[in-house]
Design a protein around this nucleic acid. Structure first.
Lengths: 282, 282
DNA sequence: GGCGGCGATACCTCCCGAGTATCGATCCGG
DNA sequence: CCGGATCGATACTCGGGAGGTATCGCCGCC
């Protein structure tokens, strides 16, 4: 199977529309129809059920969509990492570390400082990205290493080392009655009147249904909490840089959050190994 | 980058010889030279240093070899799993479980029996393979799930659940003086006169240098031990089906072996989830 | 210095991927 | 119930590129 075929199929499977998929791919619709047909014939598998009004994935098609995306990411990663290896050989080697903006508290600066003090340390570019993007960046080679937070981020398919575990706190507007309490339980905070939990976008960029406001990043979230429109349960390290108009109360039975350092399996880079070693000894 | 280019490059990088690589690929040598040249030009990276007498990998080339193999495995896996998904939808769904021949003791039959008793269980094909092959089979989609043994097998890139941990024993010919001892230490067994540790083949099929005999599987190994030509440190579950002409003595300070059940990340199969659930409850 | 092995180059052929035009089916408004 | 709109499939043509053969240039070696 050629990557061209995979790209074509993934486009159609995502759009569920040959015309739009062709447009996205920058080709005409007929060659796309033919390519998918050939792919199905060669695999001996029906991937799409099509009427002239709608296109739907078969079960096998859903498998190929998922596996195909992973395979395309792997190919892209091979290309990116090769280019980076060539740069590293001639110019400056470097690592790209990706993490969520607003998370990780004091861990990230401490890690960067400690690593920079190591002999043989290379430059570390920090990439701050939105929720759920880290996995993709790490998988397709745009990043070398990530700080992830279980159980929120999936670490499937990566090598990981645990760095630290912390409890969670509920973040409320300063002055909210509950801020007087020393600690709370999930039951106290899941259905606060007028302070619903926000909704985060899924992988596909759409928001689940529900009562809470839609948020895209931590700044938006904190703003909404300060406005008295939402509340949120966050790792307790967020207290270190909490705005003065917000307050945090520990939630005893919230699942604890583990910060892990993750990297693609089979990485052989000395620099990466050094960074991980420093991180685990922090 | 097309998979064709990747396949071509991987062949050349493994053979380090354009002629042989072309033969392996079933094409003539000139198109292969051209394809590699184009790939290098498009990437803007020198992958191979070639004189008319030898071909060697650059650092970037080594990266592309490793990443390219992984990417090709991912593509192959996408294809295989799609075919299997189509089969499962029409005919009999099934799981392929791969493990090392001779390992796993009583765990495997217990797991299979317990799973078969579950409601909604599907057929499980068991694939017994040689040392170090499991990883490949799982990665390229020929198997759905594996029983691996840490620290011997690499679990990099897979999701795993630990099943059990056991100590190790040294296996000796029956009647050997040391079999009288209740337990031993690694120092006692690493350099037994006349009973060297065997050498296992590496990933590439070649054997490391050393004194011990070369072995490919457990049957060969046990035969050699019975002949008084070797000794081996193995997980203690091997005692359950030890030949009568062999004896085993616990080695207190040998690293303990953890049997894990491993599967490719992002698997969404109900059957696989059921098997893993049964395994962890065993 | 001629020979043999190896990778690169030149040149040719042909297949396949992409484009245009069109068909056939389905849904919708009137 | 019919005509138009939408959408995927098919027929046909064209051009680029993948692959083959022949050959060159380079280097080590007897």
């Amino acid at each position: 199977m050629e990557t061209r075929e995979l790209r074509y199929f993934v486009a159609v499977a995502e759009e569920l529309h040959f015309g739009r998929a062709a447009q996205r791919l920058g080709i005409a619709q007929p060659p796309l129809s033919r390519a998918i047909g050939q792919l199905e014939r060669r695999l001996g598998v029906t991937l799409l059920e099509r009427t002239s009004r709608s296109v739907t994935l078969t079960e096998a098609g859903a498998v190929l969509l998922r596996e195909g995306q992973a395979a395309l990411d792997a190919v892209e990663a091979a290309e990116r990492r090769t280019r980076r290896a060539a740069l590293a050989a001639t110019g400056r080697p470097g690592l790209v570390l990706v993490t969520k903006a607003g998370a990780s508290g004091e861990l990230l600066p401490k890690l960067l400082d400690a690593y920079a003090a190591e002999p043989g340390a290379v430059a570390v570019d920090v990439l701050l990205c939105g929720i759920g993007e880290q996995e993709r960046l790490l998988r397709d080679g745009r990043a070398d290493v990530a700080l992830l937070h279980r159980p929120f981020d999936s670490t499937a398919g990566f090598d990981v080392e645990e760095l630290c575990t912390e409890g969670q706190v509920v973040v409320l507007p300063a002055g909210h009655p509950l801020t007087a309490r020393a600690h709370l339980r999930m039951a106290d905070v899941t259905a606060l009147p007028g302070l619903p939990m926000p909704r985060w976008p899924g992988r596909d960029g759409t928001y689940p249904d529900g009562p809470g406001p839609q948020v895209r990043d931590h700044a938006q979230l904190l703003q909404l909490i300060a406005l008295g429109r939402a509340s949120a349960v966050l790792p307790e390290s967020c207290r270190a840089h909490l705005r003065s108009d917000l307050a945090a109360v520990p939630v005893l039975d919230a699942p604890s959050v583990t910060t892990v350092i993750a990297w693609p399996p089979h990485s052989r880079s000395r620099a990466l190994a050094g960074l991980v070693r420093v991180a685990t000894r922090l």
